[in-house]
Design a protein around this nucleic acid. Sequence first.
DNA 1: GTGAAAGCGCTAACAA
DNA 2: TTGTTAGCGCTTTCAC
Lengths: 354, 354
Amino acid sequence: MVVTLKNIADELGVSPATVSLALRDKMAGSKNLSPATVAAVKATAQRLGYRPNALARSLAGQQSTTIGVLLSSLVFGSELLLDGVQTSLSDDFTSLLSVYHRDPKIERREIGVLISNRVGGIIAAASGAPENLDIYNEIVHRNKIPLVLYSRHLPNLSVPTVYADHTACTYLATKALLELGHRRILYGGVSFSKWMESHYMLIEGHNRAMSEAGLEPLLETSAGFQNWVKPQQRHGFAAGILDRWAGEKVRPTAILVDSDLLAYEILDECSARDIQVPGDVSLMGVGDYEFSSRSYVGLSTVGTVGEVSTQRAIGTRAAELLRELMAGKEWDGKDIVLPQEVRLRKTTRRLTNT
Amino acid sequence: MVVTLKNIADELGVSPATVSLALRDKMAGSKNLSPATVAAVKATAQRLGYRPNALARSLAGQQSTTIGVLLSSLVFGSELLLDGVQTSLSDDFTSLLSVYHRDPKIERREIGVLISNRVGGIIAAASGAPENLDIYNEIVHRNKIPLVLYSRHLPNLSVPTVYADHTACTYLATKALLELGHRRILYGGVSFSKWMESHYMLIEGHNRAMSEAGLEPLLETSAGFQNWVKPQQRHGFAAGILDRWAGEKVRPTAILVDSDLLAYEILDECSARDIQVPGDVSLMGVGDYEFSSRSYVGLSTVGTVGEVSTQRAIGTRAAELLRELMAGKEWDGKDIVLPQEVRLRKTTRRLTNT
DNA sequence: GTGAAAGCGCTAACAA
DNA sequence: TTGTTAGCGCTTTCAC
């Protein structure tokens, strides 16, 4: 029922090799098939409804048309990342999707799957868990699979990494709040693991801006393995930040959180507690996610210069880079750091007095 | 550098066949490897860092651990669909992701890719374009690849389909609005192609409820190939609906749109035009997307009974069904139709006086 | 209990 | 210009 190369060859009385070459227009150099046979082969392939077996092709040809995409989780925003990747290289590659739900055990297993499938390249959001460093090394050194990381680096692994300039995000955001006259700013951030580099870079950016202004930072952060995916946890953390805010003797006039996703939760909780934004408190996020720019949300935030979506930009850039690496180009040793800019909207206001 | 079965066999002085069997614990029936060799094989496989080649395995074993997921586009909500699929079967399968951006040409090509990759099963949002019906037939009849569709059926193809009860969605929504006292209701819907069955079912549900109440429906629909993905188009259609609303002699008191995504655009445009929701007009969507339930959005809508996300439920159910089909179970001929329920929130109000 | 051999569908040298 | 021959890494039947 399913047609193979050999079927076509038999049908035409030629050899499988000829069919193979004809179908792929491989007549470079010494090879030179007559246009007639090429045409004949293509015609009967068409007529028989031949579909090349990609597995056999990869196995024999020692090269794959599949790339692996490893995500830490599938949440709001992931679709844009994927779309960026997809759009950049779906003409030549198909992506094998893996998700590890922020669980290093699953991460390890999924990478194993990608290696087993002999993908031609991998784009991954590594968890950073130390016990999995060896497997990333295996990808790069043993299997020589081109790898592009995003969002975070991996220690002792020299591999290109794509990310939004984390420190700039919070540095710029804080500066913007300061310029609006805010002095008491509550910073809220979550980290999903103790190896989450961005978490610390984000805090650093904020601290630097505050100390440049001669102010003491006010941090409400949670480290450790959090399950951001579970709505309750996400929401619980937002509630915690607002509790902290409400509990301060002198209430902060602004809250800066390390992600728009968290800002949405804060907005939600503010709405429930009847706290006015920006009347009672200004709010700022990071990332400029899809809903932030809607006029009925209007979240002030930080986005990537020249890009609508940071997520999508990361996907696109990572894919472009991976394509080059797969084409055999040498990595120039530079990460791709997406420049950031503040986007002030409705959730922040200028302080008139004080 | 990369370890193969043969390497392990040589290392131990046994045959590749033995290694193959040992590694897969295949000692059923007549086969009976000594526990000692099995242990030895496993130990050296471990030590050498052996990774079975999934391609070779599939090729030789005539069965795949990969499934294809074909999406019409990657937009807000797709991540939940994918997460549903992923969570349901990532333990045994990896998914090959294909997106056709609502373009039947790309759809055709991507399906070709999935077939070429000899996936073990496919979950697809078919466009319904007539020129591609043959290729869906090819999947099912020639390649005998288990197929589960979602969102829409395909004519002349007897294949399980998973979808939210489209007619019920708008029927229930309309009834809810009627019960709130609304009489003039503007219905807005978009279709991306002329084969989009849900579009017509949704209109039908609305019409039925209206006619049961002895009222004339007021429709503002757009058929034909729209690119919903492009924000301008999406927004443009929302603006069109509001224009229509504003232009009516007797203004409708409620607007019902066929998707929360469209409702968000309407909210956005209302905010821009300073139209109060629900003060000036009540608004209702369909689908209960992630943001609708947030208290600062509070979109009244229709969701799947017992499920937080309809998208996720579709992914989960489709995956579960596909798994059964791949396990050889016969399809019982019934589609999976997700029951719907109205969820009234802040964007709708009861009309006090007519 | 274990091995030898054939073959999955294709590609890539090298012959002819 | 085309065919022959070996694999790619694995599974599976059948013989030992």
